[in-house]
Design a protein around this nucleic acid. Sequence first.
RNA 1: GGCGCGUUCGUCUAGCGGUUCAGGACGCUGCCCUCUCAAGGCAGAGAUCACGGGUUCGAAUCCCGUACGCGCUACCA
Length: 428
Amino acid sequence: MISEFPRVRFAPSPTGYLHIGGLRTALYNYLFAKKTGGKFILRIEDTDRARFVEGAVENLISTMNWSGLHYDEGPGIGGEYGPYIQSERLEIYKEHTEKLLESGKAYYCFCSKERLDFLRDGQKAKGEQSVYDKHCLKLTPEEVAEKLKDGLPYVVRMNVVANQRVHVKDIIRGNIDFDTNTIDDQVLIKSDGFPTYHLANVVDDHLMKITHTIRGEEWLPSTPKHVLLYQAFGWEVPVFAHLPLLLNPDRSKLSKRQGDVAVEDYRAKGYLKEALINFIALLGWNAGDDREFYYMNELVDSFSLDRINKSGAVFNLEKLDWLNAEHLRAKSDSELASLLKEELITIGEYSDDFSDELLEKVVVAMKERVKFIKEIPQNAGYFFAKPDSYDEKGIQKGWKEDTPGLLTSYMQKLKVSLIHLKKIMKLL
RNA sequence: GGCGCGUUCGUCUAGCGGUUCAGGACGCUGCCCUCUCAAGGCAGAGAUCACGGGUUCGAAUCCCGUACGCGCUACCA
């Protein structure tokens, strides 16, 4: 047994911002951990130096904190199995690669990009699966030593044995079989000395005692490689759960091209975190009943991996908007008032004249007419500022000599009625 | 091209062999409520359960095939 209690992880690569699909993956990991009394770990997979973005890790963490997905172990807070940033674990990968090299489960490869491209083109032209031809496996130990001594650039590849079956057990999809003839001798260590995802992921998941690997469906095709790696190390294989993809309206993988994909975009648009969490939780999972409104703690109570769907889900803004309105109305007036205050401050329309009482009254009047807090100043600016224009046509049509006098006396009468009304209310 | 996964109203989904000529939600339409806009209530349109074969007394539900869609196919994750 890997660990007595479930241990799961969210392992994003810091390429700039937290993707909405990443948020759902993180959420399902979080829900599963909380539901089962396990641990939720954050691990940064920054093994691609070319794609590293300054400040991305900080941004990722702050977005997760905003969403309420607090991790038990990870960057910033540490834990028993750190460091939790892969670029700080290079020695660990090196040591483990040595073991694989010694046992013949991996080998050095000195092939040039040109040769690899040529090989791949030829295979594709013949309609074959493009896999490395094990050219460098034929090198004698002496030849390898020679090349290493000469300082030739190299990678380390895993040695996949032909004609075998690899079984992948997936909670969501059942058992899947792969033929090793279709599995490439994947690069484990790149020529810059950094590990690829495949190696780092397996080594870290094992060392961090991850029991359930819950990740996006795009990883399913490379899972047999990971299983082979676990076997090469002689390690227990975790349980896999490959989540269905989040889709664009045209059913392709959710992408930037067709709308916002960053969690911070939705936050900036004024979506409540409660609504966003509630919405993405339901994109691919449901409790088996008709319930649609959930708070985070309620999701924890109801969640289970085996009720996750197999097919992708289109990210539908209309339903998100509805849920936002639902969560908005579910909030207390005082909470809404403080959200309104925040909004007024950010748009620069806040004034000290606005008492909390006033803001609360505004919120009571408006909360059933809006889906977003920011719509209140947009739709009902008259609560906060005197009008700077009038309906010209209306004035021309209705404004007479005696109009100011009439309006003034009407106002007086209103005030009097209001006083009476207040008295009556007190009596009641 | 190869490998893999998937396929129930426009969208998210319920359904796990009979009680379903398929239920809910969003959106849409109409009505009610109402000084407006909403919210709320009610009603309605909307799915031959991708298609074709089986298995079975009986299939959306099990099996096979086909089609279509998507993902992967990098010294990216």
